[in-house]
Design a protein around this nucleic acid. Structure first.
Lengths: 203, 203
DNA sequence: AGATTTGTTAACCATTTGGTTAAACTAAAT
DNA sequence: ATTTAGTTTAACCAAATGGTTAACAAATCT
């Protein structure tokens, strides 16, 4: 038996599957297209991944696990809130600029199949708000921050960081810029988002 | 010839199509399911709407045209920025709470087919930023607002208003609340979002 | 080397799916 | 009453699609 056959084939499949699934979604994706993308026979897909659903779940979990660590940065490290916000927004926007399809993909498929997230929540360390909440409450108490609920603040941070990627085309149409112009706006946001948030909550 | 046959059938079709398309997307939707939902034969669908694409476009345009007027509120009326922000965020969150599927549907299909938005941009009055931009620049100049670009502010407003609906399931998982708890958070946001924005930009 | 497991292919299959056809039905217009 | 035009149905169809089979090639093991 060949063991170290991690080589190309399986990787090619995952790469191709990622491309196709992220662009077209579970329903829109075609196994044939993925096979073509991986330069293999369609039967090979079913050799490596028994069926479409399993292949999809592999890709999805992969994508999700790429985003989760980003969130742990804001939820579970020890710096103060202001620093965290600066780091997270900047890092996140930089990171997603390199993987622009990720947020849409993850969010869309969770939307169509909300149970999916429960499955993931059980495995691995799923980020939770406990520490962040304690921290915010403390800084509010200390008078460092204005009164705000950690939940609302968290939602605001996520919204400002993620939405521009999800609504990119919509925003471009409204604002009247092309891809290049939009890139500039995103670049600005790497610092502008944190400034915006901090201006609002810092006493 | 029966002329006033606007009666139920066509309406049933649109209602059923709306339900199915919004839940499953263009690719995931099945003509048979729409037919069943409208209590008609599948052939009737093709009698009223020649094919899936056209039926979809009817539903999509419909949905989009429901959201556009909301945006005109913030872009093209005469009140000052602060008032506009208060009105828009509150109205938008209220409105979408009643149509929670809308933002996801519109954004997702635009994401998969960006040309779609160009089609719409040509018909009807498509909201644009010109007036809003002038107003923001003026209030910045007057010293009412801190220095901020109208584009970034606009994106922030949209993000904070729309994302919670698109990322609902994700947020619920992170924050650790159920549907009911999330409803409460949204209710809070009807005022909290505007307060958050204004605290950040008002001098 | 010979057996066995693993990787790969081409051809095939059952089902689903969007879409069509032709005929029947309905109600108004002549 | 018969024509006419719109409405509705059941049966049908071709293409697409996810998935399988069986045979073959290439490693791996003994």
């Amino acid at each position: 038996m060949k063991k170290e056959k991690n080589s190309t084939t399986e990787n090619n499949i995952l790469e191709a599957a990622k491309r196709v699934f992220q662009q077209k979604g579970l329903d829109g994706a075609r196994m044939q297209e993925i096979a073509d993308g991986a330069s293999i026979n369609k039967a090979m897909l079913h050799y490596y991944y028994r069926n479409k659903q399993l292949l999809f779940e592999a890709v999805f979990t992969n994508a999700f696990m790429l985003l989760a660590p980003q969130l742990n940065k804001i939820l579970n490290d020890d710096s103060d809130i202001e620093t965290k916000i600066k780091n997270f927004t900047s890092n996140y926007i930089s990171f997603v600029s390199v993987h622009p399809y990720l947020p849409n993909f993850v969010i869309q498929e969770i939307h169509k199949n909300p149970d999916f997230i429960q499955k993931i929540k059980k495995n691995s360390e799923f980020p939770n708000l406990d520490k962040f909440k304690k921290q915010v409450d403390l800084e509010v108490e200390k008078g460092i921050l204005k009164s705000i609920s950690a939940e609302q603040l968290f939602i605001n941070i996520l919204s400002l960081s993620i939405f521009p990627f999800i609504g990119a085309h919509l925003i471009m149409a409204f604002v009247g810029v092309d891809d290049e112009g939009f890139q500039k706006i995103l670049e600005e946001r790497k610092t502008a988002v944190a400034d915006f948030i901090i201006a609002s909550i810092k006493k």
